[in-house]
Design a protein around this nucleic acid. Sequence first.
RNA 1: GGCGGCAUACCCAAGUGGCAAGGGAGCGGUCUGCAAAACCGUUAUACAGCGGUUCAAAUCCGCUUGCCGCCUCCA
Length: 494
Amino acid sequence: MVLQVYNTQTRTKEEFVPLEPGKIRLYVCGITVYDFCHIGHARSAIVFDVIYRYLLHLGYEVVYIRNFTDIDDKIIRRANEEGTDYRTIADRYIAAFYGDMDALGVLRPAMEPLATDNIPEMLQIVGKLVDKGAAYQAGTDVYFSVDRFEGYGKLSGRETEDLMAGARVEVDVKKSNPLDFVLWKGSKPGEPSWDSPWGPGRPGWHIECSAMVTKYLGPTIDFHGGGKDLVFPHHENELAQSEMAFGVPFVRYWLHNGFVNINNEKMSKSLGNFFTIRDVLKDVHPEALRLFVISKHYRSPVDFSDETVAEAERGLERLYSTLESVLERVPGKVDAQFTEDVLKKQDPELYEKAVSLPAAFRESMDNDFNTAQAIGYIFALQRNLQRFLDKFGRKNLKGAAAVLARRAADTLTGQCNILGLLTLAPGDFFETQRRLKLKSTGVTEEELNEFIELRHKARQEKNFAEADRIRLELEAKRIHLEDSPQGTKWRVSL
RNA sequence: GGCGGCAUACCCAAGUGGCAAGGGAGCGGUCUGCAAAACCGUUAUACAGCGGUUCAAAUCCGCUUGCCGCCUCCA
């Protein structure tokens, strides 16, 4: 089986062949640090986190780089609004970003370089382009000359004539071609600036990625990723300047994730319909958000709503619930040896599903990271496992049945871990989940425990009317009581 | 105006030529003092519409309709 990936540039799925056997160079465009991240950023981060985890799982050495754009117009504007400097703003939101990413369980890339730490490298590329006649100075700015790069438009599938015709931007008179883009921007008085052969200034938007890709990974890399909106102009321009400067292919496979929509409309700052990661995580468990994101193929748009997120939460609770049952019902040590045949006889379907899950999972993931399908297989095994557990009523499992249940649970957990799911002990998950959800009911844990205690007494006295009254009172607040042999548990409905 | 994507049950969502995965919700049942959870059963002669290719199409081709995105900062 081979990994197939959809390459934006060719618009087809291609067999993945790394530049260097066993090694993968992966670069993902990070964020511009001028505000808190929203769930669109979360989707991108989670999608590439899953891809990164999967490539590691396949046994590749993956060098994963994700940059921070820490100098740009929006950062400067924000600094001016707050009467502070760009560095303060950038550092604040870098810290916030790390907080969000850690909360989401996103693995850290090998390196997360800052644009401003790589200015000399950028100037080097600008110099190369000027020397080759592919860039020119106009006023205090330096522009890339799109006409000089034959392949311009090959990533986004556009013809330069089409772009010209549809140009919505006011044409900058300094440019010799309206499509030319700025490599180096002369700074206005009071703006942050760096010295350069073309005068004091700061980098244009695209040059930083070209510089950092080359510096940390080399002139040709395997994967370059980001949101769909970066295809044009950002990645198109990166590609143009890099290939012009270094004369070798820039990226072997371009990966772009789809958007998060709200009510079927793109979520964006300009539309004002966005949710920050930190706000969402106030009532949604990070693994539930992750499951929500990867329940759909990464290239498709995904609609974010209370309903769609709640579905993911319920699904995740189901998985953890089954795992919890296995922990409770299968004795701590399962050391007895049984032949495969004996295990299979316990429940042929469960046995078969457990044994075949890794292959099915891998086949899905090898097909352009089809996490949605992989999750389908995971739920199928979960269902079989739960069914198997239920066959034993409330009894603990013993012997071969215990071994089979344990093996199925381990397989489930193992595959989910590759996606960054089921990374917690079930007990810890449910505790966090209950605490998150209880906040929205206005009932404190102490109050709730008092209710449960009162009801417990009423039940002991066979005063079921009172017991049911308490149940109903709590249900009105979406708190459901579940009587079990281990005592009364509770959960908040989603 | 140019370029691109999507359309599968009540909802979400896989499927990319050979009997339509999975999840949620609903309904009926088992269990329960009553519940909940869980389990069992049930819910698409059918994949926007029309035409074509094929022994065979949700899957390939063409047209039509509807929605969305990019072309400006944007994950």
